[in-house]
């Protein structure tokens, strides 16, 4: 009998499911935006801007969700400051402690990029020179790189946090971080795809987003399969439960295989189908968080 079955669930429920979902999109969108800025063409900057516009509001919502989930929300700052000594509260070996700091720092980076993106489209245009500073030149590269690393961290640490417990399923695998990171990237790409398609941007841009998405969903499918196969004594129990069905059919088939097929077939199709695929990918990303968080506590 797996030793993780003698524990009690931490009652992390809807607020945490929503945080994992929105936080993943925010973090993925930011990291992708920076990569687009680095290697894309001038015309691609529109995509990057969408990423910056998405990241900051969603990370604000994430912070709010996390604070509301606390038993004592007015003590949220205890995560950062040792409340009884005033010293720094940081434990590198506790994913929740590191994650709290990462959220704060990522919030700063995405906030600055958000304001910069606003300046570029004419709102707060007096900040325009400043926006160029964090997006171009050596300083811009450094700023973007550090922000993207924090973004990728936020995208994946939530899975590591679940694994660094003793809960069934969560602690029986070391692949949850990888799984959540891939899913964060795929849901972020989905949001970008929907926005870009609504704007009727160039087909080339759309095709490149789809190509990136195909790779990311491929990675997610491989990690999902490996995750399910390596749960030790719990593989059978999870796969045969409703949660397992949700993971295989909802996340695997509907959230990854279906969008992949739509992308690959859509290349020749006359009508644009990218948004359908993107909606399915978003649904899959949500179901992944829901099934893992709730399922791990229900087994």
């Amino acid at each position: 009998m797996p030793d993780t079955l003698f524990t009690q669930p931490p009652h992390w429920e809807w607020l945490i499911v929503l945080y994992f979902f929105f936080g993943g999109i925010a973090a993925g969108a930011y990291a992708l935006a920076v990569i687009v800025d680095f290697v894309g063409s001038g015309a691609d900057r529109a995509v990057a801007r969408v990423g910056y516009f998405v990241a900051f509001p969603l990370i604000l919502v994430s912070g709010l969700l996390l604070t509301l989930d606390l038993g004592a929300p007015d003590r949220f700052w205890h995560m950062l400051v040792a409340s009884n000594s005033g010293g720094l509260m940081f434990k590198w070996w506790s994913p929740m402690s590191v994650g709290s700091w990462a959220l704060l720092i990522f919030g700063l980076f995405s906030g600055i990029s958000f304001v910069g993106a606003l300046a570029e489209v004419g709102v707060l245009s007096f900040l325009r020179p400043f926006s160029g500073l964090v997006r171009r030149g050596p300083l811009g590269v450094l700023f973007g790189a550090v922000g993207a690393v924090f973004g990728l961290f936020i995208a994946g640490y939530t899975g590591v946090l679940l694994s660094v417990t003793n809960q069934p399923v969560w602690a029986d695998s070391q692949l949850l971080g990888a799984l959540f990171l891939a899913s964060a990237a795929s849901t972020a790409l989905a949001v970008l795809l929907i926005v870009i398609e609504q704007r009727h941007a160039g087909h080339g841009l759309l095709a490149r987003l789809e190509q990136a998405d195909n790779w990311v969903m491929g990675i997610e499918l491989v990690v999902l399969a490996a995750f399910l196969a390596t749960l030790g004594g719990l593989t059978g129990r999870l796969v045969l439960s409703a949660w397992g069905a949700l993971l295989i059919l909802g996340v695997g088939v509907l959230g990854n295989i279906a969008p992949l097929v739509i992308h690959l077939r859509g290349r020749d199709a006359a009508i644009q189908t990218a948004s359908y695929a993107a909606v399915l990918a978003l649904l899959g990303g949500f179901l992944l968080r829901f099934a893992i968080i709730m399922g791990g506590q229900a087994l």
Binding site: L70, S83, M96, L161
Partner: peptide, 13 residues
């Protein structure tokens, strides 16, 4: 000091 994050509940074997 505890703010009710519940990480310890999940961590206790």
């Amino acid at each position: 000091v505890c703010n009710g994050c519940r990480d310890c509940i999940a961590a206790c074997p």
